[in-house]
């Protein structure tokens, strides 16, 4: 899939909790606050999946949230990247043998980036969002070298 020029902008992120313990979710909020301040990169949490470029999914996916997870994935416009934050969304973590857990997330929707950790560290989540951005750039048709060049530009 080759993308148009409209992705040439900051990433907006929608956060979905599928039954997480709140640990990762609080770390995601901590990202927005002065210590980590991801808004300086233009990364912003949005209130609706329809505005988002990136889905940030936490939690091991329980039965009641599964249809909502799929619905929100479908509501997010293409091109999109999906990031799973936390060990329980990546592999099930400590919740692996519960009767009410149908995860991990990649059993149900395609996932691009995994950020493990219980909870994932804020720096790790920033790194995950950067990886998702690279994926979206690659979808745009840029080669790996051009992407790296672009990162250098951003850093400068």
């Amino acid at each position: 899939m080759k993308l148009d020029k409209y992705l040439d902008r900051s990433l907006w992120v929608f956060h979905l909790n599928t039954g997480s313990c709140n640990g990762c979710d609080i770390e995601i909020v901590a990202l927005l606050t002065p210590r980590y301040d991801v808004e300086r990169f233009g990364i912003k949490l949005v209130g609706s999946p329809k505005h988002a470029d990136v889905l940030l999914i936490t939690g091991p996916v329980n039965r009641k949230m599964l249809p909502r997870l799929k619905l929100i994935y479908e509501q997010t416009p293409d091109p999109k990247a999906v990031i799973v934050v936390g060990t329980c969304g990546t592999s099930g973590g400590v919740f692996y043998d519960s009767y009410n857990i149908v995860g991990p997330v990649d059993k149900h929707i395609p996932v691009d980036v995994y950020v493990p950790g219980c909870p994932a560290r804020p720096e790790g989540i920033i790194n995950g969002v950067l990886k998702a951005w690279l994926k979206l750039e690659r979808l745009r048709g840029l080669s790996g070298k051009e992407v790296e060049q672009k990162i250098e530009e951003v850093k400068a």
Binding site: G19, S20, N62, M65, F95, D97, S98, Y99
Partner: peptide
């Protein structure tokens, strides 16, 4: 309520 049920007490018994 009930959207975040993970069955933790059940898992604990194993």
């Amino acid at each position: 309520p009930g959207d975040n049920h993970r069955g933790i007490e059940f898992m604990g018994r194993n």
